[in-house]
Computed example of a mutant assay.
Amino acid sequence: MQPLLLASSSPYRRELLDRLRLPFVCASPDIDESHRPDESATQLVRRLAQEKAMALATQFPNHLIIGSDQVAVLGDRIIGKPHTFERALEQLKASSGKSVSFLTGLALFNSRTGKCQVDCVPFTVHMRLLDDAHLRRYLQAEQPYDCAGSFKAEGLGVSLFQSTEGPDATSLIGLPLICLVDMLMNEGVELP
């Protein structure tokens, strides 16, 4: 099997990829993640996932390289990682009682052949109506400042949800494993 590389420094994506029980290494790509004018959220995550995977091809010329990127969309506005308590509180207040769409771009680049598979996996979270006190307790307990939309679905973030819908729950955490398995199988990878 060709060696597998996760083009990410995200501990969440590493934990998800561990589920497949395949050996892999990680390296962080250095790319500009700026949103381009007139670029849709779907186009943005597809492009960034592909750029992340391809950015490491020179360093890893014989690998299957996984790139992934995620954005949260509320209405027609992309909401990113909050980085601070105040910004997270603002994001969660705006999301209360509404639906937030998470779009996760995924790319698998074969640096030996130049073949690149790219997809975008949507997932929607319908949020509960939440009061300030609940949101503040949640943020103090979870501190999801490095998570798009200001919550960790793999942790207490689930307490903020009324319901969810989508083809792959792992996409909500940042690495859609069902889609990735399809891509790996397309490359002839046999899973345990």
Rank of each mutant, 00 (worst) to 15 (best):
Ala41Cys: 11
Pro37Asp: 10
Leu89Arg: 09
Asp32Pro: 07
Asp32Met: 07
Ser99Tyr: 01
Leu108Trp: 01
Glu142His: 05
Ala55Cys: 10
Asp69Met: 01
Lys81Asn: 07
Ala148Val: 12
Val71Asn: 00
Ala107Gln: 06
Asp76Phe: 04
Asp132Glu: 15
Asn62Gly: 12
Lys98Thr: 02
Phe102Tyr: 09
Pro176Ala: 04
Ala72Lys: 01
Thr104Arg: 02
Pro61Val: 07
Val121Arg: 00
Glu39Ile: 06
Lys115Tyr: 02
Ile66Lys: 01
Ala133Leu: 15
Leu160Gly: 04
His126Gln: 14
Ser163Arg: 14
Ala41Asn: 05
Ile173His: 02
Ala148Asp: 06
Ser163Ile: 04
Pro122Gly: 04
Thr170Leu: 11
Gln91Lys: 05
Leu106Ser: 08
Thr124Glu: 13
Thr104Tyr: 00
Asn110Val: 05
Arg137Pro: 10
Ala57Gly: 07
Phe151Ser: 00
Gly155Phe: 07
Val71Asp: 01
Pro122Met: 10
Phe151Thr: 03
Val45Asp: 00
Gly174Trp: 01
Asp38Gly: 11
Gly157Asp: 04
Leu92Gly: 01
Glu86Thr: 12
Val100Thr: 07
Ile78Ser: 04
Gly174Lys: 07
Gln162His: 13
Ala153Met: 08
Gly157Leu: 08
Pro167Phe: 12
Ala57Arg: 05
Phe109Val: 00
Leu139Ser: 07
Leu44Lys: 03
Val100Pro: 04
Ser95Pro: 00
Phe151Trp: 06
Glu39Val: 03
Ser99Phe: 03
Gly75Ser: 07
Ser111Ala: 10
Arg36Thr: 06
Leu89Val: 08
Gly174Arg: 03
Val73Ser: 08
Ala169His: 14
Lys98Ser: 11
Met54Gln: 13
Ser101Lys: 11
Lys52Cys: 03
Ser101Asp: 14
Pro29Ser: 09
Thr113Tyr: 04
Val118Gly: 06
Arg46Pro: 01
Thr58Ser: 12
Leu64Cys: 11
Ser101Glu: 14
Gln43Cys: 05
Met54Cys: 13
His83Ile: 08
Arg137Ile: 09
Gln117Ile: 09
Asn110Pro: 03
Leu135Ile: 15
Gln70Asn: 02
Ser96Asn: 08
Asp76Gln: 13
Lys115Asn: 11
Ile173Arg: 05
Arg128Val: 12
Ser95Gly: 07
Tyr138Trp: 06
Val158Tyr: 06
Asp119Ser: 13
His63Gly: 09
Ser68Trp: 02
Asp168Arg: 09
Thr113Asn: 05
Arg36Ala: 13
Phe151Asp: 03
Phe102Glu: 06
Ala88Ile: 10
His134Gly: 09
Pro122Cys: 09
Gly166Ser: 12
Glu142Gly: 08
Leu56Asp: 00
Glu142Pro: 04
Thr84Arg: 11
Gln50Lys: 15
His134Ala: 14
Thr113Glu: 01
Ile66Tyr: 05
Arg136Ala: 14
Phe102Arg: 05
Gln50Leu: 09
Thr58Val: 13
Glu154Asn: 09
Pro29Leu: 03
Ala169Met: 15
Arg46Lys: 14
Ser99Trp: 04
Asp119Met: 05
Thr124Asn: 11
Leu172Gln: 10
Leu129Trp: 11
Arg36Gly: 05
Arg137Val: 12
Thr164Gly: 06
Val125Ala: 14
Ser159Ile: 00
Thr170Asn: 15
Ile79Asn: 04
Arg77Tyr: 08
Asp76Glu: 15
Phe161Glu: 12
Gly157Pro: 03
Gln117His: 14
Asp146Thr: 08
Ser40Gly: 07
Ala169Trp: 13
Ala141Arg: 13
Cys116Ile: 12
Cys147Ser: 03
Leu103Cys: 01
